[in-house]
Design a protein around this nucleic acid. Structure first.
Lengths: 175, 175, 175, 175
DNA sequence: GATGAATGAGCATTCATTCAT
DNA sequence: AATGAATGAATGCTCATTCAT
């Protein structure tokens, strides 16, 4: 990934997240990135190729996130880490996540396996902790965390983060 | 609202929800609705005018939803009704809600005041029921319900609905 | 010519003169005239048919103008009348003449024979008065009068009319 | 101004003059110029931008015309030059002038200040020559020259040019 | 006669993509 | 690698015209 390619990816990510993929012309990406329009196509083949590159680029970081969690052995630690997830998104990554969530509503994105992974991980943890219906609990936790992420990504300066997190940790007796 | 206008609205709603507003050409709407392309503009002025008409058309039903809840006097009934909300969406209305949720990520839509209304209603109910942090509880409930709706709208044949609902009713001691 | 037809003709004339024929939609004509759009086509067949009707409607008055002049027997009287022409246009007829002059630049209009008539009439008069080059004089007079009309039609509240007329009458020793 | 831009400008000028701006589709301009339709918009932004470019392009030559006259010191020379004006339009510039005169009847064009300049220049010249009513004379001269231009531009192979010019020079005792 | 809903061809404009340099 | 001129298909929209009532 060269310097020029990163410039393009960052510009596109920002614009895609802000205005939507369809509403962002490649000409605007080129201008924002400070490169010629042709270069986008030389490097990424097409606008869709660029989108895919962005998704992969961000996907790597998501994978890293998960590697950490899978390493934990204690079910309580696993749950704690999973709950931490949406609260630990750095603001520099908001654009990426906004894009992911936007795409969710239109085209299947690669996030599905992530959802599956998370469901199975937390389901197992709930089971280990003796919950009666671990799959249902896992489902509900997923729903809550997805909701949290949505609310945080869409609300400017969302300030209930910490309280929500503590309330969740308390609910699952992880504090 | 004439027959023809409804044809157009239904066709557009379906396509907008499926492919996104930007990715849906008016020509395709016309073909799907079985009318001439010009008619769209005669009736709705512009593509954006059509979108607004759809939002209003659906918005009326949302308002009706709320009218019911606001009438309840018992806090427990209010909460019960609010929780019922995402579970009672008829499949015939999925397109509308998918559109609403999609738009949320791109342009501010009129759903914000709905969010506010819901927060204040449930916050008051939680307060009446003696919850320690009623606003936090309301916030969390909103998040959960938003998450439920999202999951139901995006997952084909989502079959955990009932279990999730019961689990929630139980958590808030409403069963 | 029914009442309704006149309404349409007057509305169209005004709009055609103001914005140009091409830039005036039939819908605007209908609205201005206070009739339905369909009626225009029932009465005039097409937009072009309407234009032709306007031209004929106005053309009759032009023909009447000429009939008077042709009746004069004295060359001086003929010239005087011809010179009077552009100065005697009533403001209520400005729209019509503006339209005529506009059309001149795009499509041949029926005014050509008028020009020819005028040339031959004044040419004969100049000849009778012993001018050396009567055709040249006729040509020049035509040019001047056309210029006067243009200037008057395009200049709001053109106030040199009388002076210009007197100057012309004097030049041709008709005062 | 690149080669391609000139191709477009010439094609557009010809078509605008012939059929009128409104009646000339950009597709026809593109075809006539032998370029793609998109190129028109890349270079001129819009159809109106193209029209403005044409007007500026031609306007420079008009300005040059005037610079010459303003340099003359003798009133007789000034008048002679002004009278020369409409007779010295090269046939290659007919399209441009036809366009200018057409636009006069619909939208205010930049020719107004030219009219004003010409009026003040000739008015001063007439005054210097001791004419009784110099402003009236200037007005009349403008009218005549405008009429000459009109007649020449609208009449194919107008062959009285020289005679008219000589007649005018004689009338103002400039021969 | 009169209306106005409906049509569809045509228009200006945008934009992803190609390609010569 | 990099540019940016050039393309042309597709888009939202307009408008003269038709037709059922």
């Amino acid at each position: 990934m060269t310097e020029r390619q990163l410039q393009i990816i960052h510009a596109a990510l920002q614009l895609f997240a802000e205005d939507g993929v369809d509403a962002t012309p490649t000409s605007k990406i080129a201008k924002t990135a400070g490169v010629s329009e042709g270069l986008i196509f030389r490097h990424f083949g097409s606008k869709d190729g660029l989108l895919k590159a962005i998704l992969e680029y961000g996907g790597e970081r998501v994978a890293a996130f998960y590697a950490k969690i899978a390493n934990e052995s204690q079910p309580k630690d696993i749950l704690r880490q999973i709950i931490e997830l949406p609260f630990s998104i750095d603001e520099s990554e908001y654009d990426f996540w906004r894009l992911i969530y936007t795409l969710k509503w239109q085209r299947r994105t690669h996030l599905e396996n992530i959802t599956e992974q998370m469901l199975s991980l937390s389901s197992k943890a709930f089971n280990d902790l003796g919950y009666e219906a671990p799959e249902l609990e896992a489902e509900l936790l997923l729903i809550v965390l997805d909701g949290v992420a949505t609310r945080a990504l869409l609300t400017e300066s969302y300030d209930m983060k910490t309280q929500v997190k503590n309330r969740l940790l308390k609910q699952y007796k992880l504090d």
